[in-house]
């Protein structure tokens, strides 16, 4: 795995790997280096007075980890989670956060030159939460900007 900062400078020679997953019929991707593990859905403990997309917290080997519903985060309905749903555990800064998605799809190797910018005309929630778009054989994969998606949680931390 090559360093990202130099990847941009050296253009297409540099590649990164992304884990792609499905929410509904849309594909999303997260830098594989950010993913700690992928686990099957288990019921969470709800937290009071949180936005609907925050599904609560779960016990990840003794650590309390919040779980966010990606579908609901993008304005969709709250996911009716079942055993087939998965939680992608990612690192955001110093924090460990779970993201509820429908299924994990693939591992993508993407050359940095193939990452297309997000058009500015996109809706507010999307443009702040995506870091780029990639075209693959199965369709477009939107790369998530995890900080942008869940930054509000961090900044309001007391």
């Amino acid at each position: 795995m090559k360093d990202h900062s130099s990847a941009a400078a050296e253009g297409e020679a540099m590649t990164s790997q992304y884990i792609s997953f499905l929410v509904g019929d849309r594909f999303y991707g997260v830098d594989i280096m950010r993913v700690r593990e992928i686990k099957q859905w288990t019921p969470t403990t709800g937290l009071p007075n949180q936005p609907p997309y925050t599904r609560g917290v779960l016990n990840l080997r003794g650590t309390i980890v919040p779980v966010h519903d990606l579908r609901a985060r993008f304005g969709g309905p709250v996911t009716e989670a079942t055993d087939t749903h998965v939680i992608v555990i990612v690192r955001i800064g110093e924090q460990i956060v779970g993201v509820l998605v429908d299924a994990v799809s693939d591992i993508l190797t993407v050359a940095s030159g193939d990452i297309l910018p997000v058009p500015s005309s996109m809706s507010d929630v999307d443009s702040k939460s995506l870091s780029g778009l990639v075209n693959t054989e199965t369709g477009m994969v939107a790369l998530l900007d995890l900080e942008g998606l869940f930054r509000t949680d961090i900044s309001t931390a007391a």
Binding site: L47, P48, N49, I64, D153
Partner: peptide, 16 residues
């Protein structure tokens, strides 16, 4: 256990 470590402080809850 701390909730703040990976999330934030929540009103009415002191921990987990």
């Amino acid at each position: 256990k701390s909730i703040e470590a990976n999330f934030k402080q929540i009103d009415g809850v002191s921990g987990a």
